[in-house]
């Protein structure tokens, strides 16, 4: 394998991992935008999507149909979380809202453990997605699921871009994120926007959860924790609450993680997560508003 092939391979890996982070981070930012709330349950919505697919495929539903149903299940979960847990405390102090968000996470994960036990289950990936492709005489390989991740992320993010720049509802979501009382004043139905935000964000989390499980090969109730944490970091790097920022942050974080392991000696790269968080802290010190919002302080 030549040096160039190796680099190309790492870039493919970075884009694939970054895509997952971006998908999750985008949803976190959408919800944060309209509610100014860090929705920790976002990771558990990923789990709902992944389990949905695993269960449906288990009873013989074709994989693509199961994926669509899994995304829908995640969207419904997000809708219910907003309705049941967050709406009653919408005007409560920040601390109460943050605690509620944590509580929702624990409740969903523990229900998941009760029903499915905490041991990992196989994620049923169709054979066609288990194949790998080779380039440069085998120097670069990508698995089909890698390609699918990149392709689906690309398509779904284009769709999101269209939604938030071309539709009144999408523009309204960004407007409400910027200035809630101005959003009220122009006559936006903010309640409806918040519901839509949860549904959209959760659908993206569902897709991310399915792809995450497909790459890992397993599903389990706490599977959302790690991606949530990473997406959180990605969103902060990009500028919390900014959808474009979440995207950029996701890809930067994916690249950072892959490149640390690929290009640094293993004595250093085993501290990958420590390095990532050091970068995060440095970021918060230098640009508290993240990459895309240099002038804004983040309040969690």
């Amino acid at each position: 394998m030549t040096q160039l092939d190796y680099i190309l391979q790492q870039i493919v890996n970075a884009v694939s991992l970054g895509s997952l982070y971006a998908l999750v981070a985008v949803g976190l930012s959408i919800v944060f935008g309209v509610l100014k709330l860090t929705n920790f349950a976002h990771g558990d919505v990923m789990m709902v999507g992944a389990f949905g697919v695993a269960l449906l495929v288990g009873i013989g539903v074709p994989f693509p149909v199961a994926v669509i149903c899994g995304i829908a299940a995640a969207a419904v979960a997000g809708f219910l979380i907003e309705r049941i847990a967050y709406r009653p405390i919408r005007d409560a102090p920040d601390v109460a809202r943050l605690l509620t968000s944590l509580a929702v996470t624990y409740i969903i994960e523990n229900v998941g453990i009760l029903v499915f036990t905490s041991s990992p289950r196989n994620f049923p990936l169709p054979d066609i997605l288990n194949t790998s492709w080779e380039m440069s005489n085998g120097a670069i390989t990508f698995t089909s699921i890698n390609l699918l991740t990149i392709a689906l992320t690309f398509v779904s993010l284009l769709l999101l871009g269209w939604f938030i720049t071309r539709t009144t509802t999408g523009l309204g979501m960004r407007a409400a994120a910027e200035d809630m009382s101005a959003a009220h004043l122009v006559g936006l139905n903010v309640n409806r926007l918040i519901i839509v935000a949860f549904i959209v964000a959760s659908a993206y989390a569902g897709l991310a959860g399915i792809l995450w499980a497909a790459q890992a090969g397993v599903v389990q109730p706490q599977m959302g924790f790690t991606p949530l944490l990473k997406a959180f970091v990605a969103a902060i790097i990009g500028g919390f609450g900014s959808i474009a920022g979440a995207l950029v942050g996701g890809y930067i974080l994916g690249a950072l993680e892959i490149f640390i392991v690929a290009f640094l000696p293993s004595s250093v790269s085993s501290y990958r997560d420590a390095i990532v968080f050091a970068v995060l802290i440095a970021f918060l010190l230098v640009r508290p508003g993240g990459l895309l919002q240099p002038n804004r302080e983040i309040k969690l």
Binding site: T168, L171, G172, R174, A175, E178, L185, V186
Partner: peptide
């Protein structure tokens, strides 16, 4: 309709989109 104190525009949105939301 109100034009509020301090303008309260959606600064990250274009002029066209601000007008569009005015008619939402």
């Amino acid at each position: 309709a109100q034009s509020p104190e301090g303008r309260r525009l959606f600064g990250g949105l274009t002029v066209a989109d601000n007008l569009r939301l005015g008619a939402c």
